[in-house]
Design a protein around this nucleic acid. Structure first.
Length: 285
DNA sequence: CATGGGTCCTGAGTGC
DNA sequence: TGCACTCAGGACCCAT
């Protein structure tokens, strides 16, 4: 559930608190969180590494250490906390980094979906990170570029927006919100959306992400920042989680459908499926 | 290659 | 009240 705004919120919090500290020791209690390298090497690599910078790319947190890049993905419910050893741990704490300052960086994850990779310079990046598409705020990204890239693609535009190789950082919530704001139906074939319309969509993507970052993210299920605080953006969500409630634009009922296997929120009146579909199969009314 | 569906995992929600 | 069941979904894997 953490998408770009939530990961950015976590990044800012951690950067403030642990940049300049040093990892003394690592305790991994749930091996499945660590993907590479092997468990014993993972802790070994991180020992005595200084934390230079906490960065972000898409939904990945990037801990830039002295000689190692620690790549962390929160997936659904991963959470970090910086705490003193005497403070109680969150339930489901799976990895603990003991820091030179005496504090601990703790990783908790109810769903156990999150991952960590400790990568040395010269080693290949984790696949998902290596193949990541442009950041949504990349100025080189525009409607014309997307239109060209998606030419002939019949997959629903929602699938494309969720595909991290196309654009980095979007997830189920902000895709639904951006498509609603742009007036595009999630099932519209990606290749059928014009360049100008894609410019409008990009504008809405950037707008919704920027507003969500400003609010510290959305807490729809379980998201908390490093202090355990909720984000505040969920109250501004126009369609996500509002099935059956009135559309803020036209007042009609918001529908919930399934797209790409994901719960999808749409206002059928404000988000018509583009008629500029290929070849005259069925035309819609 | 493009596309869609299954999988991991646990807690919250639902219905009887 | 208690219990069985379904759902939630990011990235990855696999079949078509």
């Amino acid at each position: 559930m953490p998408e770009l705004p939530e990961v950015e919120t976590v990044r800012r919090h951690l950067a403030e608190r642990i940049e300049g500290d040093v990892i003394r020791d690592v305790e991994v209690r749930l091996p499945r969180i660590v993907r590479r390298p092997a468990l014993n090497l993972f802790a070994e690599r991180l020992k005595e590494q200084g934390i230079r910078r906490v960065g972000r790319r898409g939904k990945y947190l990037l801990f830039q250490l002295d000689q190692v890049l620690l790549v962390s993905h929160l997936r659904m419910e991963g959470r970090y906390a910086v705490a003193n050893p005497s403070e109680p741990e969150l339930p489901h704490t799976h990895v603990v980094f003991r820091l030179a300052s005496g504090r601990e960086l703790r990783y908790a994850d109810v769903r156990q979906f999150g991952t960590m990779d400790a990568v040395l310079k010269g080693e290949p990046l984790p696949k998902g990170l290596a193949e990541l598409g442009p950041e949504p705020f990349d100025p080189a990204l525009d409607g014309a570029a997307l239109h060209e890239r998606w030419r002939g693609r019949r997959a629903p535009i929602k699938s494309m927006l969720l595909d991290q190789r196309q654009i980095a950082g979007l997830g189920n919530i902000y895709v639904d919100e951006a498509l609603f704001a742009a007036g595009i139906h999630p099932l519209t074939p990606a290749g059928a959306v014009g360049a100008e319309e894609l410019d409008g969509l990009l504008r809405e993507i950037r707008d919704v992400l920027a507003r969500a970052i400003r609010e510290g993210g959305s807490s729809v299920r379980s998201f908390r920042d490093g202090y355990g605080r909720h984000g505040g953006f969920q109250i501004q969500l126009a369609v996500y989680g509002r099935a059956g409630q009135p559309c803020p634009r036209c007042g009609g009922a918001i529908q919930k459908i399934k797209v790409a296997g994901r719960g999808t929120h749409v206002c059928p009146a404000c988000q018509p499926i583009s008629v500029a579909a290929p070849m005259g199969t069925g035309v819609n009314a």
